[in-house]
């Protein structure tokens, strides 16, 4: 059960902390390199972000975050093992060393960044919290929801935003908090609550899990900022850099027009920026402790940011989410990566 699992993880973390000496620079980086794969903490099943397909393969933009790191480090995006985690377990799993990185639709917040001994390596999806209600209720706006029962998942920012929003609008609510997203959805379907709240992208993902997706609708209000991104343990800057720049490489590749398809041709490009990104000239992979072709491998095997987005959550997926804030900075969005030079 959950409490047991968290207790075990905590015990493991404590045991590790009891005997560990000083923090070693590069500990995770070296360990991952040595064992030959990335242990990746993902959700228990959230279509578009991290979920298994009918063949049992993990798919989603969070999954691709780990695959990009594996491509950069090993030249092989498939060198990843997955640990499904619910919201409550995720940070303990990372702290205890059970996983190497945590890209699990996790919101970057002040408390998480500063007090958990963790670092956020970037933002792979800009999100915001929304509400999903049954169409039968006949509600058009969240402001009409005073007195409502709300289904949420434990251990999320969602719990806090919900409380803030209702308090700020002087409305009453009753939160029914479940451990897993499956139960949250089931309770919503059974009418135990009037609405389900979560990050908006996740609402779309959960909606397609309903028996009748058309019976529910997502309300227009977005009540919070939820920058989601991969998290790593504090204290290993080499590893942090690799995770962060794997994402930046994807964003830079999209900006430079390098795609999965044209990446081999692009190797012959005369554009100095493209040549630098693909490791043909200029910057060296050794700054990251990996091969010069690290970014080439990422784009070749995982794709650039835009491709990854469309394939998992955009037009090429069941979710059909538009780029919105997640478009590049020069295309009306806020996805922006420092240059590779």
């Amino acid at each position: 059960m959950n409490f047991k699992r968290i207790s075990v993880l905590t015990a493991a973390a404590t045991a590790g902390l009891m005997i560990a000496g000083t923090v070693q620079a590069g500990a995770t980086f070296d360990a991952v390199k040595k064992k030959g794969y990335v242990q990746c903490g993902v959700s228990t099943g959230l279509p578009g972000f991290s979920a298994t397909d009918d063949k049992g393969n993990w798919k989603g933009i969070d999954v691709d975050a780990c695959r990009a790191v594996a491509a950069a480090m090993f030249g092989d995006a498939s060198k990843v093992k997955y640990t499904p985690l619910n919201a409550k377990e995720r940070f303990t799993a990372l702290q205890s060393g059970e996983i190497d990185m945590l890209p699990r639709n996790t919101t970057w917040t002040f408390t998480r960044d500063t007090s958990l001994g963790l670092n956020f390596a970037g933002v792979n999806y800009y999100d915001g919290q929304g509400f999903m209600v049954s169409k039968k209720l006949g509600v058009k706006s969240a402001k009409e929801l005073s007195g409502a029962s709300v289904c949420i998942q434990a251990g999320t920012t969602t719990e806090l935003n919900l409380a803030d929003y209702f308090r700020a609008n002087k409305m009453e609510y009753k939160a029914i908090t479940y451990d897993s997203s499956d139960e949250t959805v089931k309770a919503f379907e059974a009418g135990r609550c009037d609405m389900l709240t979560s990050d908006q992208s996740q609402l779309y993902a959960l909606r397609i899990k309903l028996t009748d997706p058309n019976s529910a609708m997502v309300l227009p209000e977005v009540i919070s900022k939820e920058p989601l991104g991969p998290v790593v343990r504090q204290g290993d800057d080499e590893w942090f850099n690799l995770v962060r720049w794997s994402l930046f490489a994807q964003i830079n590749a999209e900006e430079a027009g390098i795609t999965m398809k044209n990446v081999d041709e692009m190797l012959k490009s005369a554009d100095p920026n493209i040549r630098r990104i693909l490791g043909v000239e200029g910057v060296k992979g050794e700054f990251l402790g990996v091969d010069d072709k690290w970014a080439y491998n990422i784009v070749k095997q995982v794709g650039n940011y835009g491709e990854m987005f469309e394939r998992n959550v955009g037009e090429g997926s069941a979710l059909k989410i538009s780029r919105g804030q997640n478009a590049l900075w020069n295309k009306g969005g806020i996805q922006y990566a420092p240059p590779i030079r």
């Binding site: 905590t10 940070f91 702290q95 408390t111 998480r112 251990g155 999320t156 908090t177």
Partner: peptide, 16 residues
Amino acid sequence: VAVFAGTTLNQTGQAV
């Protein structure tokens, strides 16, 4: 376990 070892633990991160 739900509110303290669950939500509170997660919001504060003070597992031990």
